[in-house]
Every structure is written in structure tokens, then in C-alpha cells.
Design a protein around this nucleic acid. Structure first.
Length: 926
RNA sequence: GGGGAAUUAGCUCAGUUGGCUAGAGCGCUUGCAUGGCAUGCAAGAGGCCACCGGUUCGAAUCCGGUAUUCUCCA
């Protein structure tokens, strides 16, 4: 069990930190020393990849240092340098050792964290890796040697794997053999997936307990035992094997039949059974050292939150809220930690281009942000947006390491603030709802809020369950947690069932590597199908086809996937969409030819592709124009390009005015008329940036990037999309809409080429027809305005006349009154045009008569309508009820129905011949 | 992608099982009061109750569809 209770009290905290006194090192220095150290060992220092992952359906965020180097390990790509080191921004919100709800409760879980790593791609191996780890920790960071332990892989009989003697012998050179511990496959053998590169790993653990505690219990017994003060700080993975399928068919067979809760473990065993390990020709080193943890150890703190990585934000939060952080287990202290942690995750993901939203990665950000709001709202008693106030401090803190945040600090704050405000509004609405729920619960004299209501609060009003719990307890109520869980589970099942895509196995025809894309220059080609499979989603069958070479552009960078045809033999099938799965281009078809083995002729829908390319080129021209007109702060925040139009989201703080829109259109159209040739080059990222390409924080290290240039002085962008040959092919550019997407993000929708021409044509036609309808006035706008004015004038006049008319009828009726048994009775047929007028007349009579009973009938378009009005006094004195009279006496006579209040009721029906009888009937009741 | 909900005056929202001439607060206009302001008092303007269709004698209210927004889940 995790001993979270070990969050120490203050006194203990000041007394001892386990380590001998040494010069204080800031977190910045610690990070820099790591990078400097590996630089001195011949490593190239590379920047962190973005925290947000694109083009990998299995991953939303970078969750480990090695993510950006995956292709090098898999052999898909060759690295520019064989020795690399970096600090990588990572985000984890779920997983076996990590749950969002745990973060902040203890001393060491985080959502966003930095992973320091050094890498060898077929270069050095165990000897150097181990030597340098030791050197860095003990010589540079000067950690006490007698507090360090290392683990190595003990071997595994089932896999026929021997103990990692090589690592053991290397470690022996530096550390006593009694401190080298053996670890099992679970802890000390690392694998990327079912198959692929893998190998033993060696962990370094550090014992941070006080000397006293260390005397009582030996440190090595606590390694890998979830002790909060005896922790792993560095893992060195030695990739030396490649796991390949030995009998994939049997495994697939097994997996198809097998279902179960314990699936993961059983499945892993099966994978072992049906695979074999081969030696990797090029051996790699992949290491990861949690930065926040390392800082805590070096600075001798007992909690990550006590290091200078977090103390700045905690102090700032104290200043803002006026509360004091007391290092305890209290909800208030948890709130401080939650804020200090979450603000980082939120800030860096937004800075990397992911806005909060209600789906996918954006939803994860929103959830993290809302959890932070919940904590300050409930436990720091702060009811206004707080997080955005921490942003300047955080941006400054990381200015040197992750400049992308500092550069966009204003934008990020604005987005965060807007999100906070939105959620605070949601909370307020939820508070109103929960009042109703509590009132209902109390009325039923229950003491438990039922699970369904609690779930509805969350599901519909976004009201978090912990707040429901809190407010319930303040009202001496509890929440039916079990019932809530049931509802939650049902919702999850519903969602899962709806998204379940039934994927059959690939049927492999030709065993080749990733398919080659040749569609930049070629739109049709003879090739062959390498593999295909059937997928089923929501009962609909579809097929996915992979080609050896393909001219089809797969959806990417906002540009939609190509459509077209695939011909095999005499059969032609439609390709309805093209998408990417990692490096694989997948073509979607609704049906397949009978035989896929022969030569395949792949042909892209040229017209669509061309219109799409035009819109994509137009997007670049637009982007550059926006920066010219609005300023250099404009950065792309999202983009959609298809054959019909383009949509471009960008950061900008105000509505783009009509004048600005006109300027932007003018610039783009000017560039179109200049007929600039579109030049496309493939370059290493650094060269592209040097050329002046808009530096997008979206590329991985070492990528060869594609640069699209339309006049080097105007637009240079990194882009993988397809473009026209020269800007003149766009013909014409027209902005159709400008709107807001989120705080500080505007959206422009526009068209180019034929579609733009079409839009102008349609507008012309519309304008002409409106003019004609108005008899071709000189000033169209004025004509419409006067028409509107006249219309409202007429409406008022009619209303006025109707009232006058009703007053006339009323006066006539007032003369017809007769006193029956002390009641002023008026019963008459009237001529009005609608049923509402009957009601109005009743009110008129009421205000001019005392103790009245009126029954008014009208024949409107052959249908009978009746209204009965009775004075309150008469209702009481005579025990009459207009509603009852209508229902019991009148409705049958007119073959209809009706109802209303005791004093006023109306009816309608089908038979207008008995209206006179109706009046007599009512009269007889008096 | 799947569920739940919301849409009523310029803004924030009431409107209880279909029927009281669709309301409140703030804002707006006008008048009055105060030396001025904050403000107070009085009167008034302002609503195709999101849109389309259906059920009903009768729909802001019930049903179906569309749009937009919120929200939970994947």
C-alpha cells in the first residue's frame, strides 16, 4: 500500500532531510547539468517533442521520453545523431500507477512531468550507460553512494532468458555486489508492445530515509516495495532483442475466443508463448529519469512539491488566496498541490497547440483544468478564476527550457481564464440544481441522495460528484455511491458499444514494409494490394486496403484524405476516404473486388484533389495575409481543407473587423494575380527554420520537413499537404465567415477557385431577385428598411383597430345584460375573427360589470368557439366553475372539448349549429 | 462517435400535471425628487417563448425533426 500518510509534518520536515548538507542546487541547474554532462559525452542535445501527439491513434499525449524516437528503435528511420539527450515533457492521467484523482494527494504523482533521457541508437551500450549513470549521480549530483541501489534482470526460464550478467559485471565496477539486486521480468524487462525491440533494464533506486530509519530497516528490502522514500529514479533500458511472431495464427485464434477481466496478464503470457526473441543487430540504450523526483532527492526534500519546481506556484497561490500551505494531508493542502501540478499540464499542452474541448486530447485538458477549479473552489474558498493568474510566473520559470510557453503566455492565460469562467458558470447552474435535488430528498424524508440524481447532476450539468458529496454532507445527507457507480458504468458501456469497431485481421497478400506515398507528383499508378481487412462499425461493413505505392493523400495537417478509384482486373471500386495509421496509408472502400491479387490501378479523383489543393494553397496565402494585417501574434490553431472550402483557426484577441477582412482578401487576391510559382523543398528542420519558415512546435527532432514557399518574402510554411503549381490557379479568394472558436481564437471560413466563383454568382443571383421583388429600387438597403418599418407600423395599426372593434362589441354586450338571481348575465353570439378575441372580450366585460357571468359564442370558419367568464364572487357564492361548465355542458353540444380556470374557460368544437342552445344552457344554470 | 440537457425582453433567469391577457431583477427611455453624484419614486418602451412539423377545442408547456450551446462518456 502507498503510505500517503507519510506526508510529514512541518517539524519533521525541518529536522532532517536524510542527506548530508551540500551546496543547494536549483532545479534549473540540475537540468542543465544533466544536459551538459551528456553533451560532454558526445550527445546531441535536442528539444522536447510536443506534449501533444499527432498521427498516432493509440496515444493522445507523449507519455515517455522515448516516444519521439520510436521510429529509430523500430528501424523505420535513421537518426541524424547516434547519441542524443533531452528533457521531454510528458503527460499521464491514467495507467496502472497513475490516476488523475491521485495527483496532489501524495507527494510524488504528477500529470505533467519532465523525463530526462540519454539515448544510444546502435552506438554505446551497457558499459558506458552504466558508467555514466553512476558518474552523473555520484560525481556531478554527489548523491551518497551508500543510499543507492541498482537492480538488474534476473532472467526468465520460460523465455529461455539468462540473467543479465553483462549489466551485473558493469555495475560491479562501481557499486558493492550486495547493492545489486535481482529483478523479475515484470520489473526489469522492458517491451514496447506485443512485438518489436525489447530488452532487460537496470533501475537505480535511492533511499531517502533518515539515518535512524535506515538503521532499523535495511534499504534494500524496501526497493520496489512502494515505499514513498525509497524510490526508483532512473531506468536504463538495454534494447538487444527483437520480439517476432512465431505462430501468429494460433495467437489470433486464441485471442478471438478469449475474453475476460484478467485479459491483460493472461494475454501477455500467450504473447510469450507464440513469439520468439531474436538478437537485434543494432543495440540501443533508452533511459529515463523523472526530473521532479531527481530534484527532490538532490535538494533533500521529502516531497516533489517542496522543490523549487513547485514552491514558486505554491507561494503565488498563497498570495492570491490568502491561505497558507501547511504540507499536511488536509484537503486544503491537497488543493495547493493539485493547483501546482495541474497548472503545468494545462499550460504546456495549450502552448503545444491543444485547446480544451469536449473530445479527445482537448477533453483531457478540460478535465484536468476542472479538477483544479474544483479544488480551489471547494477547499481554498476561492470562487473566481485563479489558474490563469499563475501563468506569468510559470512561463517565466520555464522561459529558458520550454520557450514555447513564454512566447504564448498571454494567449495561454486567456484560454485558461475563459475555461475557468465557463466552468464556474457551470458550477453555479449545478448549485441551483443540487438545491432542487436536496429539497426533493428532504421532502421524501430520505437521508440519501439517490445515485441517479447524483449521476444526472454530473452527466447533464457537469457537476462533479465530490462536490455533490460535499454539499450533501453539509445538509446532513449522503450520496448513494453504489447507485451512482451503476449509472456511470451503464453510460460507459453505452459509449463503448457505440464506438466498438470490429476489426478483422489483416489478410496479407504481399509482405512489404510501409506503403510509399507518391501522390505529390502522381495521381494514378499501377501497383498492388499488400494487405486488406474488413472493419465493422455500427453494423456497417467497410474495408481497409493498403497499397504498395499510393497516389492517395491520407488525411493529415487538416487536409482531408483523397477519394478515387481502384481497379483490379475489370472491377472498379470506389475509395471513399484515405487515412493514416502511423506510417501506413489506409484506403477505405465499401466493397472489394472478388480477387485482389492482381495488378491494381489506383486513381485519385483529380477534380476533388485539385480543388482541395487550391484551398490548401489559399490557406497559406491567408495565413501570411493575416500576419501582415493583424500582426505576428497570429498563429495557426487548427485547419480544415477540403474540396469545398477551407477553415482556418488562429490566435487573435479581437473580432476581425470588416475592414480588416477586406484588406486580407485584397492581399490574398493580389498574390493570386501575381501568379507566384509554388516551390516545395524537403529540408532538415533546422535549415527550414533558418530559411524563415514559420516555426511550428509540431515536428519531432531529426525530421526532414517539407517546406512550401510562395514567394520567399511572403509565405514559407512547413507543410505536408498538396498544393497548386502557382497561385494563379486559385483564380479568386473569398472569405465567407469570421467567428470565435474559443478565447483568443478566431475562425475564418473561405473559398477559392471555382467554389469562390460559385459563391459570387449565387450572391449576384440572390441580389438580383431581391431587387426585382422590390421593383428595382434605387437604394436597396433603404427600400428594405422602409419595408420593415411599414410592416411594424401596419401591425400596430391592426392591433389598435382590433381593440377598437372589440370595444364596440363590448359596448353592445353591456346593453344586453340581464340580472338573473343577483348575477349579471351576458350571453351572446359575437362576430370575431379568432378565438383569442373571445377571451379579450371576457376580460373587457369583467372590468365593466359587477358579479357577472358571461358566455360568448363565435362561429369562426364554420367551427364553434365558446368562452365563459365568471366573477370570482359569483364563483364563490353560487359554487360555479367555468371549466366544469365548459366540460360538462358545453363540450357535448358543440362536439368538442375545452377547459380552463374557475373564472375563465374556453372551448372549441366541430358542430357550430347548437351555439344558441349553449347560451340557453348556461343561462339555465343560474 | 454515443447519451443527457438547455434555447422565453438588450443581459441573467422564473413560468410547477397543456388553459390565470407570458413575468422578475438588472439595463434602457421619460418625468419627478436631491446643490451635485450615488441613489430614490413614478410611468413607459421592449417578446413570431430558437426554427420546422405534429397531437389538441386550446401549446412557451406534450411528441418528432433541425440548428446552436452546455455536459458526461468513449
Amino acid at each position: 500500500m502507498l503510505q500517503t500518510g507519510l506526508i510529514y509534518n512541518r517539524q519533521f520536515r525541518n529536522e532532517t532531510n536524510g542527506f548530508k548538507k551540500r551546496k543547494f542546487m536549483t532545479s534549473g541547474e540540475i537540468r542543465q547539468q544533466f544536459l551538459d554532462f551528456f553533451k560532454s559525452k558526445g550527445h546531441e542535445i535536442v528539444p522536447s517533442a510536443p506534449i501533444v501527439v499527432k498521427n498516432d491513434p493509440t496515444l493522445l499525449f507523449t507519455n515517455a521520453g522515448m516516444n519521439q524516437f520510436k521510429d529509430y528503435f523500430l528501424g523505420n528511420k535513421k537518426p541524424a545523431s547516434t547519441r542524443v539527450a533531452d528533457t521531454q515533457k510528458c503527460l499521464r492521467v491514467s495507467g496502472k500507477h497513475n490516476d488523475l484523482e491521485e495527483v496532489g494527494v501524495d507527494t510524488y504523482h504528477h500529470t505533467m512531468f519532465e523525463m530526462l533521457g540519454n539515448w544510444s541508437f546502435g552506438d554505446y551500450f551497457k558499459a558506458d550507460a552504466i558508467k555514466w549513470s553512476w558518474e552523473l549521480l555520484t560525481e556531478v549530483y554527489k548523491l551518497d553512494k551508500d543510499r543507492l541501489y541498482v537492480t538488474i534482470f534476473e532472467g526468465d526460464a520460460k523465455e529461455n532468458l539468462a540473467k543479465d550478467e553483462e549489466a551485473y559485471n558493469e555495475w560491479k565496477k562501481w557499486i558493492g555486489e550486495d547493492r545489486i539486486l535481482l529483478g523479475n521480468k515484470k520489473d526489469n524487462f522492458w517491451e514496447m508492445g506485443d512485438t518489436g525491440p525489447c530488452g532487460p533494464c537496470s533501475e537505480i533506486h535511492v533511499d531517502c530515509r533518515s539515518d535512524e530509519e535506515r538503521k532499523q530497516v535495511e534499504g534494500k528490502t524496501l526497493v520496489n516495495a512502494d515505499h514513498p522514500q525509497v524510490i526508483e529514479i532512473w531506468n536504463n533500458v538495454f534494447m538487444q532483442f527483437n520480439r517476432v511472431w512465431d505462430n501468429k495464427a494460433s495467437f489470433d485464434e486464441w485471442e478471438k475466443q478469449y475474453e475476460g477481466d484478467d485479459k491483460k496478464e493472461v494475454r501477455a503470457k500467450k504473447v510469450v508463448q507464440y513469439t520468439k526473441l531474436e538478437n537485434l543487430p543494432a543495440k540501443h540504450v533508452d533511459t529515463g529519469m523523472g526530473f521532479e523526483r531527481l530534484v527532490r532527492v538532490i535538494q533533500g526534500k521529502q516531497s516533489n512539491y517542496d522543490t523549487d519546481v513547485f514552491t514558486g506556484t505554491i507561494a503565488e497561490t498563497e498570495k492570491i488566496t490568502g491561505k497558507k500551505y501547511d504540507y499536511s494531508d488536509s484537503k486544503e493542502a491537497v488543493a495547493f498541490r493539485v493547483l501546482a501540478d495541474h497548472i503545468r499540464a494545462i499550460a504546456f499542452t495549450i502552448a503545444d497547440g491543444q485547446l480544451p474541448s469536449n473530445t479527445g486530447a482537448g477533453y483531457v485538458i478540460r478535465r484536468i483544468l476542472r479538477r483544479a477549479v474544483r479544488y480551489y473552489y471547494s477547499y481554498l474558498d476561492y470562487k473566481q478564476p485563479l489558474l490563469h493568474q499563475l501563468m506569468p510566473l510559470l512561463a517565466k520559470q520555464f522561459e529558458q527550457v520550454f520557450p514555447e510557453l513564454f512566447k504564448q503566455a498571454d494567449f495561454v492565460s486567456k484560454v485558461v481564464r475563459e475555461e475557468e469562467e465557463a466552468f464556474l458558470r457551470t458550477l453555479e447552474k449545478g448549485l441551483k440544481k443540487i438545491d432542487d435535488v436536496i429539497a426533493d430528498t428532504k421532502q421524501e424524508s430520505a437521508t440519501v441522495i439517490n445515485g441517479k440524481a447524483a449521476f444526472e447532476l454530473l452527466d447533464t450539468y457537469g457537476f462533479p460528484i465530490d462536490l455533490t458529496r460535499l454539499i450533501a454532507s453539509e445538509n446532513n445527507l449522503s450520496v448513494d455511491e453504489a447507485g451512482f457507480e451503476v449509472e456511470m458504468k451503464e453510460q460507459k458501456n453505452r459509449s463503448r458499444a457505440a464506438t466498438a469497431i470490429d476489426t478483422e485481421d489483416w489478410i496479407v497478400l504481399h509482405d512489404t514494409a510501409a506503403s510509399e506515398f507518391i501522390g505529390y507528383d502522381t495521381l494514378e499508378i499501377k501497383t498492388k494490394v499488400t494487405k486488406y481487412r474488413k472493419v465493422k462499425a455500427k453494423g456497417k461493413e467497410a474495408f481497409q486496403v493498403v497499397l504498395e505505392t499510393t497516389p492517395f493523400y491520407a488525411e493529415s495537417g487538416g487536409q482531408v484524405g483523397d477519394t478515387g478509384t481502384l481497379q483490379i482486373g475489370d472491377e472498379v471500386i470506389d475509395i471513399v476516404d484515405t487515412k493514416k495509421e502511423n506510417n501506413l496509408t489506409i484506403h477505405f472502400a465499401e466493397k472489394l473486388p472478388a480477387d485482389l491479387s492482381g495488378e491494381a490501378f489506383a486513381k485519385v479523383n483529380i477534380e476533388k484533389r485539385f480543388s482541395t489543393a487550391a484551398n490548401h494553397s489559399a490557406t497559406h496565402l491567408l495565413h501570411a495575409a493575416l500576419r501582415k494585417v493583424l500582426g505576428a501574434h497570429v498563429a495557426q490553431k487548427g485547419s480544415l481543407v477540403n474540396n469545398e472550402y477551407l477553415r482556418f483557426d488562429f490566435s487573435h484577441f479581437a473580432k476581425v473587423t470588416d475592414e480588416e477582412i477586406e484588406q486580407i482578401e485584397a492581399i490574398v487576391n493580389e498574390k493570386i494575380r501575381e501568379n507566384i510559382p509554388v516551390v516545395i523543398k524537403e529540408l532538415p528542420k533546422d535549415e527550414a527554420v533558418a530559411l524563415g519558415a514559420m516555426a511550428l512546435f509540431g515536428e519531432k527532432y531529426g525530421d526532414i520537413v517539407r517546406v512550401v514557399i510562395m514567394d520567399p518574402a511572403y509565405s514559407i510554411e512547413l507543410c505536408g499537404g498538396t498544393h497548386v503549381g502557382s497561385t494563379g490557379q486559385l483564380g479568386f479568394f473569398k472569405i465567407q465567415a469570421e467567428s470565435a472558436v474559443a478565447a483568443g481564437v478566431r475562425r475564418i471560413e473561405a473559398v477559392s477557385g471555382k467554389a469562390a466563383e460559385e459563391v459570387i454568382k449565387e450572391q449576384g443571383v440572390l441580389l438580383r431577385s431581391i431587387k426585382e421583388a422590390l421593383k428595382n429600387p434605387k437604394d436597396l438597403q433603404k427600400a428594405v428598411e422602409s419595408l420593415q418599418a411599414e410592416n411594424s407600423e401596419l401591425r400596430k395599426t391592426i392591433e389598435h383597430l382590433e381593440n377598437r372593434f372589440l370595444v364596440g362589441i363590448r359596448n353592445e354586450l353591456l346593453h344586453k345584460d340581464e340580472i338573473i338571481n343577483g348575477v349579471t348575465f351576458v350571453g351572446s353570439m359575437v362576430e370575431v375573427s379568432n378565438a383569442d378575441a373571445l377571451k379579450k372580450l371576457c376580460f373587457e366585460l369583467k372590468s365593466h360589470l359587477n358579479d357577472h357571468l358571461a358566455v360568448l359564442c363565435a362561429n369562426i370558419g364554420g367551427k364553434p368557439f365558446v368562452a365563459v367568464s365568471i366573477d370570482e364572487k359569483v364563483v364563490a357564492a353560487k359554487n360555479l366553475d367555468a371549466g366544469k361548465i365548459i366540460k360538462e355542458h358545453i363540450a357535448p353540444l358543440i362536439k368538442g372539448g375545452g377547459g380552463g380556470q374557475k373564472t375563465l374557460a374556453t372551448a372549441g368544437g366541430q358542430d357550430a349549429s347548437n351555439l344558441q342552445a349553449v347560451i340557453e344552457k348556461v343561462k339555465s344554470l343560474l
